[in-house]
Design a protein around this nucleic acid. Structure first.
Ligand code: SF4
Ligand code: SF4
Lengths: 145, 145
DNA sequence: AATATTTAAGAGTATTTTGTCTTTTATAAA
DNA sequence: TTTATAAAAGACAAAATACTCTTAAATATT
Protein backbone atom coordinates (compact mmCIF):
# COMPACT_ATOMS: atom_id res chain seq x y z
CA UNK A 1 0.00 0.00 0.00
CA UNK A 2 2.17 2.80 -1.29
CA UNK A 3 -0.16 5.71 -0.63
CA UNK A 4 2.41 8.20 -1.91
CA UNK A 5 4.45 7.49 -5.04
CA UNK A 6 8.21 7.38 -4.99
CA UNK A 7 8.54 10.78 -6.64
CA UNK A 8 5.98 12.18 -4.22
CA UNK A 9 8.00 10.85 -1.33
CA UNK A 10 11.18 12.42 -2.70
CA UNK A 11 9.41 15.73 -3.08
CA UNK A 12 8.14 15.62 0.48
CA UNK A 13 11.55 14.65 1.83
CA UNK A 14 13.18 17.56 0.01
CA UNK A 15 10.56 20.02 1.22
CA UNK A 16 10.84 18.73 4.75
CA UNK A 17 14.60 19.13 4.54
CA UNK A 18 14.18 22.67 3.31
CA UNK A 19 11.64 23.51 5.98
CA UNK A 20 13.85 22.25 8.76
CA UNK A 21 16.88 24.18 7.50
CA UNK A 22 15.04 27.29 6.49
CA UNK A 23 16.70 29.58 9.05
CA UNK A 24 20.13 29.01 7.49
CA UNK A 25 19.58 29.83 3.86
CA UNK A 26 17.05 31.24 1.48
CA UNK A 27 17.74 29.21 -1.63
CA UNK A 28 18.69 25.58 -1.61
CA UNK A 29 21.12 24.06 -4.05
CA UNK A 30 19.45 21.03 -5.60
CA UNK A 31 22.73 19.17 -6.06
CA UNK A 32 23.56 19.46 -2.36
CA UNK A 33 20.08 18.38 -1.36
CA UNK A 34 20.20 15.40 -3.66
CA UNK A 35 23.43 14.29 -2.01
CA UNK A 36 22.25 14.87 1.53
CA UNK A 37 18.98 13.10 0.92
CA UNK A 38 20.47 10.42 -1.31
CA UNK A 39 18.10 11.12 -4.19
CA UNK A 40 19.15 11.22 -7.84
CA UNK A 41 19.98 14.82 -8.70
CA UNK A 42 18.23 14.91 -12.06
CA UNK A 43 15.19 13.11 -10.75
CA UNK A 44 14.90 15.46 -7.81
CA UNK A 45 15.34 18.42 -10.15
CA UNK A 46 12.36 17.22 -12.17
CA UNK A 47 10.20 16.84 -9.10
CA UNK A 48 11.09 20.27 -7.75
CA UNK A 49 10.44 21.71 -11.20
CA UNK A 50 6.78 20.77 -10.97
CA UNK A 51 6.57 22.29 -7.50
CA UNK A 52 7.99 25.46 -9.01
CA UNK A 53 5.51 25.30 -11.87
CA UNK A 54 2.66 24.82 -9.41
CA UNK A 55 3.69 27.93 -7.54
CA UNK A 56 4.84 26.21 -4.37
CA UNK A 57 8.52 26.95 -4.88
CA UNK A 58 10.48 29.61 -6.72
CA UNK A 59 13.75 28.94 -8.45
CA UNK A 60 16.80 30.86 -9.43
CA UNK A 61 19.36 29.82 -12.05
CA UNK A 62 23.02 30.58 -12.17
CA UNK A 63 25.70 30.72 -9.49
CA UNK A 64 24.25 30.37 -5.98
CA UNK A 65 20.96 29.57 -7.61
CA UNK A 66 18.52 27.06 -6.24
CA UNK A 67 14.96 26.63 -5.07
CA UNK A 68 13.18 28.36 -2.22
CA UNK A 69 9.77 28.69 -0.70
CA UNK A 70 7.29 31.22 -2.01
CA UNK A 71 5.14 30.88 1.09
CA UNK A 72 6.43 30.00 4.52
CA UNK A 73 6.20 26.30 5.47
CA UNK A 74 3.59 27.29 8.05
CA UNK A 75 1.31 28.37 5.23
CA UNK A 76 1.85 25.35 3.00
CA UNK A 77 -0.60 22.56 3.68
CA UNK A 78 0.20 18.91 3.23
CA UNK A 79 -2.97 18.81 1.17
CA UNK A 80 -1.70 21.16 -1.51
CA UNK A 81 1.59 19.31 -1.59
CA UNK A 82 0.11 15.90 -2.28
CA UNK A 83 -2.25 17.44 -4.79
CA UNK A 84 0.74 18.93 -6.58
CA UNK A 85 2.86 15.79 -6.29
CA UNK A 86 0.23 13.09 -6.74
CA UNK A 87 -2.48 14.80 -8.73
CA UNK A 88 -5.61 16.74 -7.87
CA UNK A 89 -7.71 13.60 -7.64
CA UNK A 90 -5.68 12.27 -4.74
CA UNK A 91 -8.60 12.45 -2.31
CA UNK A 92 -11.24 11.26 -4.76
CA UNK A 93 -10.29 7.63 -5.18
CA UNK A 94 -12.12 4.54 -4.01
CA UNK A 95 -10.57 2.26 -1.42
CA UNK A 96 -11.04 -0.94 -3.36
CA UNK A 97 -10.59 0.67 -6.73
CA UNK A 98 -13.83 -0.79 -8.00
CA UNK A 99 -15.10 1.35 -10.88
CA UNK A 100 -18.21 3.45 -10.83
CA UNK A 101 -18.14 4.34 -7.16
CA UNK A 102 -21.70 4.82 -6.21
CA UNK A 103 -23.62 6.63 -3.58
CA UNK A 104 -26.54 4.96 -5.33
CA UNK A 105 -25.33 1.40 -4.86
CA UNK A 106 -22.53 1.58 -2.33
CA UNK A 107 -20.74 -1.49 -1.10
CA UNK A 108 -20.60 -2.02 2.68
CA UNK A 109 -17.18 -0.43 2.82
CA UNK A 110 -18.33 2.75 1.15
CA UNK A 111 -19.55 4.77 4.13
CA UNK A 112 -16.56 3.64 6.15
CA UNK A 113 -14.12 4.57 3.43
CA UNK A 114 -15.76 7.93 2.84
CA UNK A 115 -15.29 8.59 6.56
CA UNK A 116 -11.60 7.77 6.47
CA UNK A 117 -11.17 9.72 3.26
CA UNK A 118 -12.78 12.88 4.55
CA UNK A 119 -10.85 12.49 7.73
CA UNK A 120 -7.56 12.17 5.85
CA UNK A 121 -8.51 15.10 3.68
CA UNK A 122 -9.22 17.47 6.56
CA UNK A 123 -6.15 16.25 8.41
CA UNK A 124 -4.01 16.97 5.35
CA UNK A 125 -5.65 20.34 4.95
CA UNK A 126 -4.87 21.36 8.51
CA UNK A 127 -1.34 19.98 8.66
CA UNK A 128 1.31 22.38 7.44
CA UNK A 129 4.72 21.52 6.09
CA UNK A 130 6.10 23.16 9.22
CA UNK A 131 3.97 20.90 11.42
CA UNK A 132 5.18 17.89 9.52
CA UNK A 133 8.78 18.78 10.11
CA UNK A 134 8.44 19.50 13.80
CA UNK A 135 9.46 16.17 15.24
CA UNK A 136 11.26 14.93 12.21
CA UNK A 137 14.93 14.19 12.51
CA UNK A 138 17.26 14.17 9.58
CA UNK A 139 18.04 10.49 9.88
CA UNK A 140 14.36 9.94 9.37
CA UNK A 141 14.53 11.57 5.99
CA UNK A 142 17.62 9.74 4.85
CA UNK A 143 17.67 6.21 3.67
CA UNK A 144 18.47 3.93 6.56
CA UNK A 145 20.04 1.28 4.40
CA UNK B 1 -4.09 7.22 -4.43
CA UNK B 2 -4.62 3.74 -5.72
CA UNK B 3 -4.78 1.83 -2.44
CA UNK B 4 -5.40 -1.45 -4.24
CA UNK B 5 -3.46 -2.34 -7.39
CA UNK B 6 -5.17 -3.08 -10.68
CA UNK B 7 -4.64 -6.82 -10.34
CA UNK B 8 -5.88 -6.66 -6.76
CA UNK B 9 -9.00 -4.91 -7.93
CA UNK B 10 -9.59 -7.52 -10.62
CA UNK B 11 -9.19 -10.27 -8.06
CA UNK B 12 -11.69 -8.66 -5.72
CA UNK B 13 -14.18 -8.07 -8.51
CA UNK B 14 -13.97 -11.71 -9.56
CA UNK B 15 -14.36 -12.96 -6.00
CA UNK B 16 -17.28 -10.61 -5.42
CA UNK B 17 -18.88 -11.90 -8.59
CA UNK B 18 -18.40 -15.46 -7.46
CA UNK B 19 -19.74 -14.73 -3.99
CA UNK B 20 -22.88 -13.12 -5.34
CA UNK B 21 -23.57 -15.99 -7.74
CA UNK B 22 -22.56 -18.75 -5.41
CA UNK B 23 -25.98 -20.32 -5.12
CA UNK B 24 -26.08 -21.09 -8.83
CA UNK B 25 -22.88 -23.00 -9.39
CA UNK B 26 -19.97 -24.55 -7.58
CA UNK B 27 -17.17 -23.93 -10.03
CA UNK B 28 -16.80 -20.83 -12.11
CA UNK B 29 -15.44 -20.81 -15.62
CA UNK B 30 -12.70 -18.21 -15.80
CA UNK B 31 -13.37 -17.42 -19.45
CA UNK B 32 -17.01 -16.59 -18.73
CA UNK B 33 -16.07 -14.50 -15.73
CA UNK B 34 -13.48 -12.59 -17.71
CA UNK B 35 -16.12 -11.73 -20.31
CA UNK B 36 -18.78 -10.78 -17.81
CA UNK B 37 -16.40 -8.63 -15.80
CA UNK B 38 -14.54 -7.31 -18.83
CA UNK B 39 -11.15 -8.40 -17.58
CA UNK B 40 -8.49 -9.97 -19.77
CA UNK B 41 -8.93 -13.75 -19.56
CA UNK B 42 -5.25 -14.60 -19.21
CA UNK B 43 -4.59 -11.84 -16.74
CA UNK B 44 -7.53 -12.90 -14.62
CA UNK B 45 -6.35 -16.49 -14.80
CA UNK B 46 -2.99 -15.44 -13.39
CA UNK B 47 -4.59 -13.56 -10.54
CA UNK B 48 -6.91 -16.41 -9.64
CA UNK B 49 -3.94 -18.77 -9.81
CA UNK B 50 -2.27 -17.02 -6.90
CA UNK B 51 -5.52 -17.14 -4.93
CA UNK B 52 -5.56 -20.87 -5.58
CA UNK B 53 -1.91 -21.15 -4.55
CA UNK B 54 -2.64 -19.23 -1.36
CA UNK B 55 -5.39 -21.65 -0.49
CA UNK B 56 -8.30 -19.26 -0.93
CA UNK B 57 -9.69 -20.92 -4.03
CA UNK B 58 -9.57 -24.41 -5.44
CA UNK B 59 -9.38 -25.15 -9.13
CA UNK B 60 -10.35 -27.93 -11.44
CA UNK B 61 -9.02 -28.45 -14.96
CA UNK B 62 -10.76 -30.04 -17.89
CA UNK B 63 -14.33 -29.83 -19.14
CA UNK B 64 -16.62 -27.99 -16.75
CA UNK B 65 -13.54 -27.08 -14.79
CA UNK B 66 -13.02 -23.74 -13.10
CA UNK B 67 -12.33 -22.16 -9.78
CA UNK B 68 -14.38 -22.33 -6.60
CA UNK B 69 -14.25 -21.34 -3.00
CA UNK B 70 -12.55 -23.52 -0.43
CA UNK B 71 -14.20 -21.65 2.42
CA UNK B 72 -17.56 -19.95 2.23
CA UNK B 73 -17.45 -16.20 1.48
CA UNK B 74 -18.73 -15.64 5.03
CA UNK B 75 -15.49 -17.08 6.35
CA UNK B 76 -13.15 -15.23 4.01
CA UNK B 77 -12.00 -11.89 5.39
CA UNK B 78 -11.18 -8.89 3.26
CA UNK B 79 -7.94 -8.82 5.22
CA UNK B 80 -6.72 -12.19 3.99
CA UNK B 81 -7.73 -11.28 0.46
CA UNK B 82 -5.71 -8.08 0.30
CA UNK B 83 -2.80 -9.83 1.96
CA UNK B 84 -2.93 -12.48 -0.75
CA UNK B 85 -3.46 -10.01 -3.57
CA UNK B 86 -1.29 -7.11 -2.41
CA UNK B 87 1.28 -8.77 -0.20
CA UNK B 88 1.53 -9.52 3.48
CA UNK B 89 3.00 -6.12 4.26
CA UNK B 90 -0.13 -4.35 3.10
CA UNK B 91 -0.95 -3.02 6.55
CA UNK B 92 2.62 -2.19 7.51
CA UNK B 93 3.34 0.71 5.22
CA UNK B 94 3.84 4.35 6.10
CA UNK B 95 1.42 6.99 4.88
CA UNK B 96 4.04 9.31 3.47
CA UNK B 97 6.40 6.55 2.40
CA UNK B 98 9.27 8.14 4.24
CA UNK B 99 11.82 5.46 5.04
CA UNK B 100 12.74 4.26 8.48
CA UNK B 101 9.33 4.76 10.05
CA UNK B 102 10.04 5.45 13.62
CA UNK B 103 8.23 5.15 16.87
CA UNK B 104 11.44 6.67 18.17
CA UNK B 105 11.31 9.84 16.09
CA UNK B 106 7.82 9.94 14.67
CA UNK B 107 6.63 12.77 12.50
CA UNK B 108 3.43 14.56 13.57
CA UNK B 109 1.39 12.42 11.20
CA UNK B 110 2.64 9.20 12.72
CA UNK B 111 0.17 8.69 15.56
CA UNK B 112 -2.66 9.78 13.32
CA UNK B 113 -1.65 7.41 10.56
CA UNK B 114 -1.17 4.51 12.94
CA UNK B 115 -4.72 5.13 14.11
CA UNK B 116 -6.13 5.02 10.61
CA UNK B 117 -4.02 2.01 9.76
CA UNK B 118 -5.10 -0.03 12.75
CA UNK B 119 -8.64 1.03 12.09
CA UNK B 120 -8.43 -0.11 8.48
CA UNK B 121 -6.80 -3.32 9.58
CA UNK B 122 -9.47 -4.28 12.06
CA UNK B 123 -12.20 -3.23 9.65
CA UNK B 124 -10.70 -5.45 6.95
CA UNK B 125 -10.35 -8.28 9.44
CA UNK B 126 -14.01 -8.12 10.40
CA UNK B 127 -15.42 -7.63 6.91
CA UNK B 128 -16.09 -10.84 5.05
CA UNK B 129 -16.28 -11.30 1.33
CA UNK B 130 -19.96 -12.01 1.84
CA UNK B 131 -20.40 -8.71 3.68
CA UNK B 132 -18.64 -6.92 0.89
CA UNK B 133 -20.99 -8.33 -1.70
CA UNK B 134 -24.19 -7.60 0.20
CA UNK B 135 -25.11 -4.27 -1.31
CA UNK B 136 -23.06 -4.65 -4.41
CA UNK B 137 -24.82 -4.67 -7.72
CA UNK B 138 -23.38 -6.23 -10.82
CA UNK B 139 -23.17 -2.96 -12.70
CA UNK B 140 -20.96 -1.78 -9.93
CA UNK B 141 -18.46 -4.48 -10.71
CA UNK B 142 -18.49 -3.91 -14.42
CA UNK B 143 -16.77 -1.07 -16.13
CA UNK B 144 -19.15 1.81 -16.54
CA UNK B 145 -17.49 3.12 -19.65
C1' DA C 1 31.82 40.23 -23.38
C1' DA C 2 33.40 35.66 -21.81
C1' DT C 3 33.04 32.08 -18.64
C1' DA C 4 31.29 29.35 -14.95
C1' DT C 5 27.34 27.86 -12.43
C1' DT C 6 22.88 26.28 -11.78
C1' DT C 7 18.00 25.25 -12.97
C1' DA C 8 14.79 23.99 -17.13
C1' DA C 9 13.63 20.99 -20.60
C1' DG C 10 13.59 17.10 -23.15
C1' DA C 11 15.35 12.76 -24.90
C1' DG C 12 16.64 8.39 -23.59
C1' DT C 13 17.09 4.03 -20.44
C1' DA C 14 15.65 0.76 -16.73
C1' DT C 15 12.35 -1.36 -13.92
C1' DT C 16 7.82 -2.54 -12.55
C1' DT C 17 3.21 -3.36 -13.56
C1' DT C 18 -0.13 -4.67 -16.70
C1' DG C 19 -1.68 -7.37 -20.32
C1' DT C 20 -1.14 -11.05 -24.30
C1' DC C 21 0.10 -15.27 -26.43
C1' DT C 22 1.71 -20.05 -26.56
C1' DT C 23 2.62 -24.43 -24.60
C1' DT C 24 1.85 -27.82 -21.03
C1' DT C 25 -0.90 -30.52 -17.81
C1' DA C 26 -5.07 -32.34 -15.84
C1' DT C 27 -9.71 -34.00 -16.46
C1' DA C 28 -13.99 -35.60 -18.74
C1' DA C 29 -16.42 -37.66 -22.27
C1' DA C 30 -16.82 -39.98 -26.60
C1' DT D 1 -7.56 -44.44 -25.87
C1' DT D 2 -8.47 -40.49 -28.40
C1' DT D 3 -10.24 -35.99 -28.36
C1' DA D 4 -11.96 -31.85 -26.42
C1' DT D 5 -11.90 -28.68 -22.65
C1' DA D 6 -10.15 -25.82 -19.15
C1' DA D 7 -6.64 -24.27 -15.82
C1' DA D 8 -1.32 -23.88 -15.02
C1' DA D 9 2.84 -22.14 -16.43
C1' DG D 10 5.88 -19.45 -18.72
C1' DA D 11 7.50 -16.52 -22.51
C1' DC D 12 6.54 -12.32 -24.55
C1' DA D 13 4.71 -7.31 -25.37
C1' DA D 14 2.91 -2.81 -23.91
C1' DA D 15 2.34 0.80 -20.67
C1' DA D 16 3.46 3.24 -16.62
C1' DT D 17 6.75 4.64 -13.43
C1' DA D 18 11.31 5.52 -11.98
C1' DC D 19 15.65 7.09 -13.14
C1' DT D 20 19.74 9.03 -16.30
C1' DC D 21 21.95 11.84 -19.55
C1' DT D 22 22.42 15.71 -22.70
C1' DT D 23 21.42 20.24 -24.19
C1' DA D 24 19.41 24.83 -23.49
C1' DA D 25 18.49 28.97 -20.87
C1' DA D 26 19.27 32.11 -17.12
C1' DT D 27 22.23 34.40 -13.88
C1' DA D 28 26.52 35.87 -11.56
C1' DT D 29 31.32 36.76 -11.67
C1' DT D 30 35.44 37.94 -13.96
S1 SF4 E 1 -19.16 1.56 -3.02
FE1 SF4 E 1 -17.40 0.46 -2.18
S2 SF4 E 1 -16.31 -0.29 -3.95
FE2 SF4 E 1 -17.71 1.25 -4.69
S3 SF4 E 1 -16.55 3.13 -4.70
FE3 SF4 E 1 -17.56 3.06 -2.70
S4 SF4 E 1 -16.10 2.06 -1.38
FE4 SF4 E 1 -15.42 1.69 -3.47
S1 SF4 F 1 6.86 8.99 11.51
FE1 SF4 F 1 5.58 9.87 9.89
S2 SF4 F 1 6.79 9.71 8.04
FE2 SF4 F 1 7.75 8.36 9.52
S3 SF4 F 1 6.81 6.40 9.16
FE3 SF4 F 1 5.54 7.35 10.76
S4 SF4 F 1 3.95 8.40 9.60
FE4 SF4 F 1 5.53 7.87 8.13
Amino acid sequence: MRVISKSGEYGLRALLHMASNQENEGFFNIREMSEELDISFHFLTKILQVLTQKGILQSYRGPNGGVGFLKSPEEITLSELVRALEGDDFFDKCLLGLPGCGERQPCPMHAYWMGIRNNLKSEFETTSLADLGKNTRLQHLRLIA
